[in-house]
């Protein structure tokens, strides 16, 4: 069973609809016990980095998510949910993230750029590429090469940034695969079936 982390940050409905469309069974998980019980976990999220981490801590979900990740079961972070997997973000410099992976998120600062980066941009993997729907103001500039990965997707908004990754049992995408049309759904299925 796929658990969708419910911690009051974001709309889970779209994700549930996409999973249903793909024929994947899911349930919302919002307690430490429920997180323990699922085989796979999706950490969604929209909004503010600091607020989201506070919500996780308030719900006493930080340790369970970390335990889940170290147990080796697959964890997929989407949008802000991906950002939380790393060490931190300039959006809330004083708030540590989950720290499952090294790296900090930075704001787009080029004054000629529209911010948020909102809309469709191409994500390039080593062997494939496709258009994905993004909404974000902070980005991970690069993958820490000391951490092995099994796939890295790069997109551009004024500069290149990490749009998707898989590293062992951890995966993430900065874009919304559940809102990225057929290509996004295909990718989502792949990320939930390895």
């Amino acid at each position: 069973m796929i658990g969708i982390l419910d911690y009051g940050c974001g709309n889970l409905r779209s994700l549930e609809n996409a999973l249903e469309f793909l024929g994947l069974e899911s349930c919302r998980v919002g307690t430490p016990e429920a997180i323990k019980a699922v085989d796979r976990l999706i950490q969604p999220g929209v909004g503010h980095f600091g607020y989201a981490m506070t919500q996780l801590r308030k719900g006493k979900l930080e340790d369970p998510v970390q335990d889940f990740a170290t147990s080796g079961r697959p964890l997929l972070g989407i949008c802000l949910g991906m950002q939380l997997m790393f060490q931190g973000s300039e959006e809330a410099p004083e708030v540590p993230g989950l720290g499952l992976l090294p790296g900090r998120f930075e704001p787009f600062t080029d004054p000629t750029l529209k911010v948020p980066h909102m809309g469709w941009s191409t994500v390039e993997f080593q062997d494939t590429e496709g258009p994905a729907y993004f909404v974000h103001s902070f980005f991970l500039p690069e993958w820490n090469l000391n951490v092995p990965h099994q796939g890295l997707g790069i997109a551009q908004h004024g500069r290149p940034f990490v749009a998707a990754f898989r590293s062992g049992n951890l995966a993430g995408c900065q874009f919304h695969p559940e809102k990225s049309g057929i290509w996004g759904l295909k990718l989502l299925k792949e990320m939930l079936t390895w």
Binding site: E20, F21, K179, S180, G181, G184
Partner: peptide, 8 residues
């Protein structure tokens, strides 16, 4: 609509 389309 949300169950039928997967674009924003």
């Amino acid at each position: 609509v949300a169950k039928a389309i997967f674009i924003p």
